[in-house]
Design a binder for these strands. Structure first.
Length: 766
RNA sequence: GGACGGUUAGCUCAGUUGGUAGAGCAUCGCUUUUACACAGCGGAGGUCGCAGGUUCGAGCCCUGCACCGUCCACCA
């Protein structure tokens, strides 16, 4: 395309793909590329690997934009710059997506053998991964594809296993039989973080237990009650402590105990203790050495200790039945139907979680936590915005041990093997059936834990009789090791060159899930923090401030937007008005506005290019074989202002103030360069007239006469060309990290002594 | 129950160490001037949530309040 062929409108989709291809094939994204001449510093970002279970959404576009801005900025500065891309198998998240897909197809998840199911999900994931990679390219991501990692790559899994083994050897990971958060729909436990608390209105029943009355919202598991607790100083019940209460309907006697944790003011001041269905009760049972009786099974149905009549009923159904019977027995004293309380639900499906007693692997957080807290306190890891440090600290303070076992198929299998004289799993449906691997060990087996040998290792044991733990890791356990795992810890060259990484840029919604875990595990494994800065962007919301999600159907498809307005327009719309930590509200109007800006850049450039002389493509103030130009006072001022603007942009970028940098550029380019500088130069660009005298020319050069509409001589014309060329070239460089496509497209049209790419041009400011 | 954030022009948001309020979009008027109508020029529009305080001076600092939002949390 020649300058004359540049149309008067910039149509992004006609240029973007070929520009990206040019970058990619030139190896410009690779820090080992020859375009880096003796870099003094390195700069690295590990891309938060997108979940490979669907298409990219607008939220991905935010992180791509911000990380690409940083990457391109540092690359142009001459830093040895690595942006390492990746993809996440996203364990539970993907399994949920796939489960829904199977439901739609009318297939039963639980009848498909584990290995087959795993393969299906793997195919599904890899297919999505491929699509996503294409989409990242559409957004202009200048990441080094030659270093791309997938969370299930063998070397990643190897690192994850080694970490687990080390934690085990250090006594920081342990297996314990404990009350866990169980989702009856997804048939797995969840970590505390994956539990959502929702406010619900339920009935609070006051039920007669013989000598006293207890208040409860859960009457259905009363058959598993082991005690009634009261406050030791409660006068009403003081003389009952140590005596017996009676469970309604089965007339079983249970002791009345005293505990400080009971609030005398709540309900009747007496609380039933059902350790297998409530975390508080569980703690109470442990403290008072009470038995723990399971009554709700993995499907949320009542089991054995319940009388025949209620067995097999789901919680809700059982509750109605039990209440009705208690009422009939005349033991229901009062019902408060408007009792508002928080219930724990699955963060994915909203199903009420049933606590269950199961052996799971836990990570001891205390040691890991202390290191991370210290790193943040001493500033080894800095948060942007800073206030997120407070949020981080608050969460860290209240950290409990982390359950990393998941009873799902899709993930990294826990490298633990058991051997016992009794079968480790009581299975239904045979070895091949999925239930076998899905189901957690039955309670009866748990009691035999002591009889089992446990083998923890990165490789399976050599001798006979071992069975691998059917569970997989919580996906955040492996992704918590992402920064060092991807760089080839411990001996990889990249690990030496790029670890600790410079910036971790991600959404604040995964601050606890991911960022905290990366800091803790990074410090534990490598002894160093995984990154120096954490930049947390907000969530993209729609006009009604709703979080965009597939299930709500309010997603903006970034690919559709790119096709209409261009990737550059989308990127600018996501950067400007977006401050760290705050949510981003995006509208089509805004994107259109920056499409217009791209067009403005295009046309201003077109004008400049049309007015440069082909014979002296790069006008210079002095130079061999070139016409001598003399800059006016105004010209010098223009250059000074340009330089100041470049410094300002650079400083903003250094401080992670991307919105300021973008706004500064937008404003300068449009309202200073295009509106003022170009307009002022127009008269000086006229073909010089023979009449103009040098004296008058110099005088008028400072004040081009609008009356004649003429510039003053060849030298002055060259000066004008020089100013325009310099301003444009500088602006294109500065704008490149934000709007890589349009700037590079124009750059390819700029008169140059030799072929070059803007992506590796030198940054025009310190 | 704990904690955090927000409240600035019709809308979405900036406002860097306190010094007579800013941008984009929308809107109104004019201009179809040979880079661009995805444009140019010009205009209108805010007692910066409320009440006190510190200061020569506060959108910015302090105290209290109101409203909105978010996160954390095993109280029946």
């Amino acid at each position: 395309m020649s300058i004359k062929e540049m149309p008067s409108q910039y149509i992004a989709r006609e240029h973007e793909d070929s520009i990206y291809k040019m970058w990619e094939t030139s190896d410009a994204f690779n820090p080992d590329s020859t375009s880096y001449v003796l870099p003094t510093k390195s700069f690295s970002i590990i891309m938060p690997p997108p979940n490979s279970n669907g298409s990219l959404h607008i939220g991905h576009a935010v992180f791509v934009t911000l990380q690409d801005i940083m990457t391109r900025f540092h690359r142009m500065r001459g830093d040895k710059t690595l942006w390492l891309p990746g993809a996440d198998h996203a364990g539970f998240e993907t399994q949920v997506v796939y489960q829904k897909k199977l439901e739609k197809e009318g297939r039963n998840w639980f009848t498909i053998p584990r290995a087959e199911l795993y393969q299906e999900i793997l195919d599904f994931t890899l297919e999505n991964k491929k699509i996503m990679e294409g989409q990242l390219r559409k957004l202009g991501a200048s990441c080094d594809w030659s270093r791309e990692k997938f969370t299930l790559d063998p070397d990643i899994v190897k690192t994850v296993y080694a970490t687990f083994k080390r934690l085990y050897d250090d006594g920081l990971v342990y297996r314990e039989n404990r009350l866990v958060n169980w989702c009856v729909k997804h048939q797995t436990t969840l970590s505390d973080l994956e539990v959502k608390h929702e406010e619900r209105v339920d009935s609070l029943y006051c039920i007669n237990y013989g000598p006293l009355t207890v208040a409860t919202v859960r009457p259905e598991p009363i058959f598993a009650d082991v005690a009634v607790a009261v406050h030791p100083k409660d006068k009403r019940y003081k003389n009952l402590i140590g005596k017996m209460a009676r469970i309604p309907l089965i007339n079983k006697e249970i002791p009345i105990i005293a505990d400080e944790s009971v609030e005398a003011g709540f309900g009747t001041g007496a609380v039933k203790v059902t350790p297998s269905v409530d975390h508080n009760d569980f703690e109470l049972a442990k403290k008072h050495n009470l038995p723990i009786i399971q009554i709700i099974d993995q499907f949320g149905k009542l089991t054995e200790p319940a009388p025949e009549k209620y067995r097999g009923m789901k919680v809700k159904e059982a509750r109605e039945a039990v209440v009705a019977d208690i009422k009939e027995a005349g033991l229901l004293q009062k019902v408060d139907e408007q009792y508002v309380h928080a219930v724990a639900v699955c963060y994915k499906c909203g199903t009420i979680l049933e606590p269950r007693l199961l052996p799971q692997w836990y990570i001891k957080m205390a040691t890991l936590r202390d290191g991370a807290v210290k790193a943040v306190k001493t500033g080894e890891v800095k948060f942007v915005p800073k206030r997120m440090e407070k949020v981080f600290m608050h969460w860290m303070k209240n950290l409990r041990d982390w359950n990393i076992s998941r009873q799902i198929v899709w993930g990294i299998r826990i490298p633990v093997w058991y051997r016992s004289s009794v079968p480790p799993l009581r299975v239904r449906g045979g070895e091949e059936g999925l239930r076998a691997s899905h189901n957690p060990p039955q309670p009866s087996l748990i009691l035999r834990e002591g009889d089992m040998e446990i083998y923890v290792g990165t490789e399976p044991p050599k001798d006979e009789g071992w069975t691998q733990d059917p569970d997989v890791f919580d996906t955040w356990f492996s992704s918590g090791q992402w920064p060092f795992a991807t760089l080839g810890y411990p001996n990889g060259k990249d690990f030496k060159d790029f670890y600790p990484t410079s910036v971790m840029e991600t959404g604040w919604d995964i601050l606890f899930f991911w960022v905290a875990r990366m800091i803790m595990l990074g410090l534990y494994v490598t002894g160093k923090v995984p990154f120096e800065h954490v930049y947390l962007h907000g969530l993209v919301r729609d006009k009604d401030r709703q979080k965009m999600s597939k299930s709500k159907g309010n997603v903006i498809d970034p690919l559709g937007v790119i096709d209409l307005y261009g990737a550059d327009a989308l990127r600018m719309a996501l950067v400007i008005g977006n401050t760290a930590g705050n949510d981003i509200i995006i509208s089509e109007e805004k994107i259109k506005g920056y499409r217009n800006f791209a067009n403005k850049i295009w046309n201003a450039s077109r004008f400049v290019l049309m007015n440069l002389d082909p014979l002296s493509p790069t006008p210079l103030p002095k130079g061999e074989g070139r016409v001598r130009v003399k800059l006016t006072v105004a010209d010098k001022k223009t250059l000074k202002e340009l330089d100041a603007m470049a410094k300002k942009v650079t400083s903003h970028l250094d401080k992670f103030e991307f919105h300021h940098a973008g706004e500064t550029l937008y404003h300068y380019f449009w309202h200073t360069f295009a509106d003022k500088i170009i307009e002022q130069m127009k008269p000086r660009l006229q073909i010089p007239s023979p009449q103009s005298s040098p004296t008058r020319g110099e005088e008028a050069g400072r004040n081009p006469s609008p009356a004649t509409g003429r510039g003053q001589g060849e030298g002055d014309r060259k000066a004008a060309q020089y100013i325009l060329h310099t301003c444009l070239a500088t602006c294109l460089k500065l704008l490149h990290p934000f709007m890589p496509f349009v700037t590079e497209t124009i750059w390819q049209q700029m008169p140059k002594e030799k072929q070059s790419m803007l992506i590796v041009e030198k940054w025009p400011s310190k």
